[in-house]
């Protein structure tokens, strides 16, 4: 039996909006008083419709306001801000370093998993980072890099656990300004191939509001998806669709997506068209092109719930869904960093 029929919905709507004859209304409210179940149903309906009103109003206002912002003349970052200065200074020194050493001696270590999945961490010889401003790494040691994305403005980032291995300290680079931050591992789950790291660095002042929520709702076959990650020092956009609801050999932890990915893109967020995170890129098929695997976001939520002693607040609303694709990506990309371990 349907506890909340269409007729009841119409009746509730009628009463809630003050319609109906006086006799009808009197009868209804008398009935409510004598029937607690009905009263409960009616009250929860009232609070639900109020919620819809509030949420739709605020969502509409948010998208309206984004439009107004284009009329605003913004002053650029003030150089009187001491924190900004140091961030910009770091940016300058680091980009010089990268420009000199880039692209020589790259060794694409391709770690083949026995089951045909190829993980997507990228390895580079240490030398390029020998003058590294933040972390000193023994010479000869190999640097593995991947992609990490912000899940909390206080500096929590998620990436693939295979990028980090069993290290407890990593570094994160914000490629937009070149800042490099020290970060530590907060939680790790190798089953899901997820690790949460937190920036632990005085020079980090937090992020602005994260524009993408993490969705664990149903993902549909053939749904369009896109990803942003760092197979090289510049961010790379890739798009495709969900090609299978399970991963390699029926792996229910992952989706299969037709997005081309390369080493360095492990840990990249996978977005749906609206810009909601629906997965984390983790591997690709070693023998077939354009067959990639992403850990499902429902497992991310699970990971956040179980692997953390103190829960962190995850981004909850989507402030980019109304934007064009290019605007969306422009906004999202500020929250995607390079991780090195």
């Amino acid at each position: 039996m349907n506890p909340f029929s269409e007729e009841m919905n119409e009746l509730f709507e009628k009463m809630a909006s003050g319609e109906g004859s006086r006799a009808e209304r009197t009868l209804f409210f008398q009935e409510l008083e004598s029937n607690p179940t009905l009263k409960n149903l009616y009250e929860s309906h009232l609070s639900f419709r109020k919620g819809i009103e509030v949420v739709t109003r605020r969502t509409a206002l948010r998208s309206e306001i984004s439009g107004y912002h284009q009329q605003v003349k913004t002053t650029k970052r003030k150089s009187s801000n001491p924190i900004s200065i140091s961030r910009w200074a770091i940016a300058a020194s680091v980009s010089a370093l990268i420009a000199v050493g880039a692209w020589f001696g790259y060794d694409w270590e391709q770690r083949q998993k026995a089951n045909g999945e190829q993980l997507l961490a990228r390895s580079t010889p240490k030398s390029r980072h020998s003058n590294h401003p933040i972390r000193t790494i023994e010479s000869g040691e190999e640097v593995v890099s991947g992609t990490a994305f912000a899940v909390n403005a206080e500096g929590y980032f998620l990436t693939s656990s295979h990028v980090i291995g069993n290290k407890s300290e990593v570094e994160l680079e914000n490629p937009e300004d070149g800042s490099i931050y020290a970060a530590r591992v907060v939680a790790r789950d190798t089953k899901y191939d997820l690790v949460l790291v937190k920036i632990d660095d005085e020079s980090f002042i937090g992020l602005s509001r994260i524009p993408y929520p993490i969705k664990s709702s149903k993902v549909n076959l053939a749904q369009d998806v896109f990803t942003l990650g760092f197979p090289k020092e510049d961010i790379v956009f890739g798009e495709g669709s969900v090609s299978s609801l399970n991963g390699y050999n029926g792996d229910t932890l992952k989706y299969q997506v037709s997005v081309p990915v390369n080493p360095g893109q492990s840990g990249s967020p996978l977005f749906d068209e609206q810009g909601n995170v629906i997965g984390v890129i983790s591997a690709k098929n070693g023998s077939a092109d354009g067959v990639s695997y992403a850990v499902k976001s429902s497992h991310m939520i699970h990971f956040f719930e179980n692997a953390l002693e103190d829960p962190i607040q995850l981004p909850k609303s989507n402030s980019v869904s109304g934007l064009s694709k290019t605007k969306k990506i422009q906004k999202i990309k500020s929250f995607i960093f390079i991780v090195r371990a």
Partner: peptide, 15 residues
């Protein structure tokens, strides 16, 4: 507080 309370509604409407 309302934003927090309506969290699921925000994502529900979005989905």
């Amino acid at each position: 507080e309302e934003e927090q309370k309506y969290d699921d509604l925000y994502s529900g409407l979005d989905q």
